[in-house]
């Protein structure tokens, strides 16, 4: 058949879908907006729940790409036009291609922590995001702005998730377990550092997540406090002062930490929103794209020949993203085999 599929986005879903599609006999054009593939994984030092290096998974995904995948990096697709059962694609810099089907794997963006103004990100020196902590793990240097090692760190869960005030009522799924993973890693780097996690609920839904949570408490003595942060400020010594309500004790709590880590959630990527608008695709109140049926055709859009995979349809962990990508490849194969445009 050797039909050509355009895969938009070279993160985990795009890479996995591309290799799955080539193994099914399709030619693939993989278009990535950045200079290299890998999406968010390339910035992630270690993955939950087993703390394996992110690069290990990324290398495996990249190595599966065969010669039937034509990669275009540094190209942001701005228009996808359905024309006579095919699609014309173009990017901002004038690049164009055509394809028999399109798979959107445009992924997510991290929540902009500045929107939670009361947490002081971008204002107080030692308030950082989970993504920035992950970069610090890559360099092996966990330090405050002053260069000193922190003696007490707080993690705030659900930053930009389950929060009506910022317009995101959904759970981003991966932040709880990421906080547990990062808290353990802190204890491994800095055994004398006290670590506090402020959470709403611990949503340890995946395999081995609960064990990781238990390990964090029993082996690393990480303190989990149920309660949301109301505000953070900086005192004259540079310490971050947190005001939290401990909702199990029903008491307000004031605590000083040397560093505050905000567990930023997922939002639809800008390119997902832009292409969704341009194509007239339906998005939900959470702004992620909507497939024709959430259960039985989760990869199929309202536009014949246009498919979804990965986090453009909502928060997912890596394993679920990869499974979704393979599922999308099968859905595309099924589209050509059974429903449309047989050759």
């Amino acid at each position: 058949m050797n039909r050509k599929i355009a895969v938009i986005g070279g993160g985990a879903a795009g890479l996995e879908a591309s290799s799955a599609l080539t193994s099914l006999g399709f030619r693939v054009v993989l278009v990535e907006k950045e200079d290299e593939t890998g999406g968010h994984i390339k910035n992630w030092h270690a993955l939950f729940p087993n703390r394996r290096p992110g690069v290990e998974v990324l290398d495996a995904l990249r190595s599966k790409l065969g010669s039937d995948v034509e990669l275009f990096s540094g190209k942001t697709v701005t228009e996808i036009k359905p024309v006579n059962d095919r699609f014309e694609l173009s990017s901002a810099d004038g690049w164009k291609t055509e394809a028999d089907a399109v798979l959107l794997t445009t992924g997510f963006s991290l929540f902009n922590a500045r929107k939670k103004e009361e947490y002081g990100y971008g204002i107080y020196d030692n308030v950082i995001t989970s993504a920035e902590l992950e970069s610090a793990f890559s360099t092996g240097k966990i330090a405050m702005k002053s260069g000193e090692q922190p003696k007490r760190i707080g993690f705030v869960h659900c930053v930009g998730s389950r929060d009506e005030k910022v317009g995101n009522i959904y759970c981003s799924k991966v932040c709880c377990v990421t906080a547990v993973k990062q808290a353990i890693e802190i204890k491994q780097y800095l055994p004398d550092c006290e670590v506090f996690c402020f959470y709403m609920d611990m949503r340890m839904f995946g395999r081995h997540y609960e064990e990781l949570y238990k390990e964090a408490q029993e082996k690393y003595y990480i303190q989990f406090i149920r309660g949301r942060l109301s505000e953070s400020t900086e005192d004259h010594t540079g310490k971050i002062i947190l005001k939290v309500e401990d909702t199990l004790l029903g008491k307000p709590l004031k605590i000083g930490v040397d560093m505050l880590v905000l567990m930023v959630g997922m939002e639809p990527a800008e390119i997902t929103k832009n292409l969704g608008t341009q194509l007239g695709l339906v998005s939900d109140s959470d702004r992620f794209l909507v497939s024709t049926d959430q259960h039985i055709s989760a990869n199929i859009s309202e536009i014949p020949g246009l498919f979804f995979a990965g986090t453009c349809t909502g928060p997912k962990n890596i394993a679920d993203t990869l499974a979704d990508a393979r599922s999308a490849a099968l859905a595309i194969a099924g589209y050509f085999d059974n429903n449309h445009n047989k050759s």
Partner: peptide
């Protein structure tokens, strides 16, 4: 303290 951060909020 990053004054620039406050300016963005303002």
């Amino acid at each position: 303290m990053k004054h620039e951060g406050k300016k963005l909020v303002w």
